[in-house]
């Protein structure tokens, strides 16, 4: 933040983060670009996916976890590509084993390929199982405030509604629903999915979101590292604007310079 203002950290399940921008690691050209963009974003929480190991690959081939080392970043394995609660729970358990017991996960259970819209029925079921199994669950969901409330009641440590479809770059389609979710939530609310450019990240924060999670907006920018820097500043700017409180809107104009003392008065 600025040199005269110190924001409270983002608190998720007892962990504290100075950065309110969380980033993914997909769609980059190579691991070098991944590492540079993540560094430029200032993110402390970094998501990744869990997939079958390519058998017969070069044993010396670089590994994503060498680029985003668990010593430097808080890793957030996701369940992307899971369409049932059962697959999502299995994936989380594999991730926990992969990371030597690290229990923070991003749960997402998808409905179909065309929309990647969350299947909230399966998401709720998976969340129940995972929370019971000791996971700290940050959950991707729709912008339905009732579902968000249920996920919090189950014990999810952060609720992450979409701004618009994953990878669409359509920004925040329903700011009024996000406001409803934010106003009722007792856990952090992060916009996850849909952000396309810096102003949309700032908008999410101005609405009162606690953070923003994004991947494509950075990775698919023409210059990902520069966009990562833009997003870092946008999230900070939006956060400060939210805390500062915007001026009231008014119907007519209101001069900034005083009317008294004009030479033509």
């Amino acid at each position: 933040m600025t040199d005269f203002f110190q924001d409270a950290p983002l608190r998720v399940a007892g962990r504290e983060f100075a950065s309110r921008l969380l980033v993914g690691t997909g769609k980059y050209r190579d691991f070098d670009e991944t590492g540079e963009a993540i560094a430029a974003s200032g993110a402390e929480v970094v998501t990744f996916a869990v997939r079958r190991t390519n058998l017969g690959q070069d044993a010396a081939a670089p590994n994503l976890l060498d680029v985003i080392s668990p010593e430097r970043y808080t890793l957030l394995p996701n369940t992307a590509g899971c369409y049932t609660a059962q697959d999502a729970v299995r994936t989380c358990r594999l991730a926990r084993e992969l990371l030597d017991g690290h229990n923070l996960v991003k749960l997402e259970v998808l409905g179909d390929d065309a929309t990647l819209y969350p299947n909230v029925v399966e998401t709720l079921a998976a969340a129940e199982t995972l929370v019971e199994d000791g996971f700290d669950v940050m959950v991707y969901t729709s912008d339905d405030p009732i579902v968000a409330r249920e996920l919090e009641r189950i014990g999810c440590c952060a609720v992450m509604p979409l701004g618009s479809l994953i990878g669409s770059g359509h920004g925040i389609q329903n700011p009024y629903n996000l406001r409803l979710i934010i106003e009722q939530a007792g856990v952090p609310v992060l916009v996850d999915a849909g952000i396309g450019t810096a102003s949309e990240a700032a908008q999410a924060m101005e609405l009162g979101c606690d953070g923003v999670l994004m991947n494509s907006a950075i990775a698919h920018a023409r210059q990902p590292v520069l966009m990562a820097s833009a997003m870092k500043q946008a999230v900070q700017a939006g956060r400060e604007a939210f805390l500062a409180g915007r001026m009231p809107r008014r119907q007519g104009a209101d001069p900034s310079s005083p009317l008294a003392g004009r030479i033509n008065a």
Binding site: V23, G24, T25, G26, K27, Y28, T34, T47, F48, A49, V50, R51, R52, T53, L55, N63, L64, L65, P77, N78, A80, L94, L98, I166, L213, M214, N215, S216, A219
Partner: peptide
């Protein structure tokens, strides 16, 4: 048997 690792994702 499943053997998995970390890959890029969001």
């Amino acid at each position: 048997v499943e053997i998995v690792h970390a890959i890029g994702g969001g």
